[in-house]
Each structure stands twice: as C-alpha cells, then as structure tokens.
C-alpha cells in the first residue's frame, strides 16, 4: 500500500505500519498522527518518538512499561499523548514496526 506524502511515495503494510524506515520524516509522521486522531505533535510527542526510534535502532524490544521507565514520560502521560493503544500508535507514527509477540 502506497500513500503520497509531499510528492513522495511512502510504503505501508496492511495494518498501516511503514515498511521502509528510510522513507520516514517529520511530515510523514504528522500525516500518520493526523490519521490516528492526533492533530498536533507537541515537543513531548517528538521526544517520545525519538526515544522509540533509538530503542528500535538498538534492537531493544519495546513495552509500555519500558516507555514508562525511559525518563522521558510516565505511563499515564504516554496514554494521554497517544490515546487508545499508545505503544501501537506511537510505533506507527515513529515509522517502526508494531511491537509483537511470537505468534
């Protein structure tokens, strides 16, 4: 599935997660966020997004509890920033894969 963002083709899988991180930029993130019901990404959102991307780069598996222990935000605020399924939503906006279990 391809969506045009600022004349750039961005690839998504069936669930709406990006399949090629090299296509990610701030405008793409804002477009996904708007689709997910977050009209404005605040500096706090960006801090969380950057942290998630760093963790993904270091191949650290992501959990909600880990975000809460990141020092950037606590779990309550994380839910407020990305309502209803914060980890899934934040991963989507960050352009990284959905956190999964083995099956």
């Amino acid at each position: 599935m391809t969506t045009l963002v600022n004349e750039k083709n961005v690839q998504f899988n069936e669930e709406g997660f990006m399949t090629d991180f090299s296509q990610w930029d701030k405008e793409v993130a804002e477009m996904i966020a708007a689709k997910e019901g977050i009209p404005v990404l605040t500096p706090k959102h960006w801090e969380v997004i950057n942290w998630l991307q760093e963790q993904h780069k270091s191949k650290n598996p992501l959990t909600i509890r880990k975000v809460g222990g990141s020092g950037i935000t606590d779990i309550k605020e994380f839910y407020a920033l990305f309502p209803n399924g914060p980890l899934k939503k934040a991963a989507k906006i960050s352009g990284i894969p959905k956190p999964v279990s083995c099956i």
């Binding site: 909600i64 980890l87 959905k98 956190p99 279990s101 099956i103």
Partner: peptide, 12 residues
C-alpha cells in the same frame, strides 16, 4: 492483553 491483539503476527 497489553499487546494489540491475541495474535500479533499477521499470518497467525
């Protein structure tokens, strides 16, 4: 579950 579904991998 804290995950996004009972099964999280697309094929499963």
């Amino acid at each position: 579950t804290p995950l996004s579904g009972a099964f999280t991998k697309p094929f499963a």
